[in-house]
């Protein structure tokens, strides 16, 4: 599987590079309305779930994708592991373009990219034992030493003793144990890259810390690159090196986690961070409350997509010009913001 050129390529390129990723879903319509539309020459309606997302992910780096529900973060995550075919844009994995990969390349990608899902009650097949669930990816990829690997992966996920779990069905396990099994399944192939979609949001608060520390350990020991998808900024702050804030299918601000949390610049990021409760009554924060709902993802607003809810609305430019995600002259960190409030320093991402 290892062709000779591979190591060189992976040294130069980031592990994952996403450029202008778009995913639009056509709205389901009946036969008659689609015929009507066709005869009247109108175009089909699309939901713009992801509309031009770009970022890079280095080996061993963790990136957090944050945003309200419906902002396209899960769709982005699913596109990253090729559960969706992107409408437009490129995803490069170790310098290999996933949209044009052949079967062999895709097979290698499937071995190295895994996903952890939100709901551990849904992500395990109710009619498969723990052993079969973990053995499945190994059998698909013809990997030897099935039992030894499964044992090791379960041990790593702190399911001890592993043999005790082999014949158990998901309904015999608790939520935390299930999520550990799901993590073990993702790890058993020894991947380089994992997308974790709200990995602890369905778990009891008391179990979260354990699963999170497992995921931290996994990132470290496997030298994994992880994309965490969550709406929980305090979780992302704890887990991620870098953060990208999404709004209506676009990244509005990205940069180092601490920079963004401590010093948010995009009005949307500010309101998100302000919404996180602070367990200290003396901390007085200026509250920016978000008015209204997320805009229409079918009939996308012109200009800046946030202009209807923005507290810093500065005039027509917000409604006419779509701001680009770029480094701004005001900040000296490597943060990128897409907002007309700040001056472009001419360097575009």
């Amino acid at each position: 599987m290892s062709d000779t050129g591979a190591p060189d390529v992976s040294d130069e390129n980031p592990l994952l590079r996403v450029e202008g990723l778009q995913k639009h879903f056509q709205i389901n319509e009946g036969l008659i309305s689609s015929l009507l539309r066709a005869t009247m020459g109108k175009e089909a309606d699309y939901v713009h779930a992801v509309d031009g997302v770009s970022f890079e992910l280095e080996r061993g780096e963790t990136l957090g994708l944050a945003g309200e529900s419906g902002c396209g973060k899960t769709t982005t995550g699913m596109s990253l592991v090729k559960l969706h075919e992107p409408t437009d844009g490129r995803i490069e994995f170790r310098g290999m373009d996933l949209t044009e990969s052949d079967d062999e390349e895709l097979d290698e990608f499937r071995q190295n990219a895994q996903m952890i899902f939100q709901d551990p009650f849904e992500s395990l097949n109710p009619r498969m034992t723990v052993y079969d669930t973990l053995a499945e990816p190994l059998r698909i990829h013809d990997i030897e030493n099935e039992t030894a690997r499964i044992r090791r992966a379960l041990e790593f996920a702190e399911l001890q003793p592993p043999d005790h779990y082999f014949d158990q069905y998901p309904h015999e396990l608790s939520g935390g144990q299930r999520q550990r099994v799901a993590i073990a399944r993702a790890l058993v192939l020894d991947p380089d890259f994992i997308v974790a979609d709200e990995p602890v949001s369905m778990l009891d608060v008391s179990l979260r810390a354990g699963v999170l520390s497992l995921m931290e350990r996994m990132t470290e020991e496997f030298n994994l690159s992880v994309v965490y998808i969550s709406h929980d900024l305090s979780l992302l702050r704890h887990m991620c090196d870098r953060l990208a804030i999404m709004y209506m299918g676009e990244i509005v601000e990205k940069g180092a986690t601490e920079d963004i949390i401590e010093n948010p610049q995009h009005p949307y990021t500010r309101s998100l961070i302000n919404a996180v409760p602070v367990p200290d009554p003396d901390v007085g924060r200026e509250r920016v409350e978000l008015a209204g709902e997320v805009g229409d993802a079918i009939d996308v607003p012109s200009g800046c997509r946030f202009h209807g809810r923005c507290s810093e609305y500065i005039g027509d430019i917000c409604e006419t010009d779509s701001p680009s995600l770029e480094q701004k002259a005001e900040f000296d960190d490597d943060r990128e913001v897409s907002c007309h409030l700040y001056d472009s320093c001419g360097k575009q991402s």
Binding site: F117, E122, I140, R185
Partner: peptide, 14 residues
Amino acid sequence: ERPFVKAAQVAGAS
């Protein structure tokens, strides 16, 4: 549409 089917797809199942 259930996540366990998605998980199998991610693992490369036919």
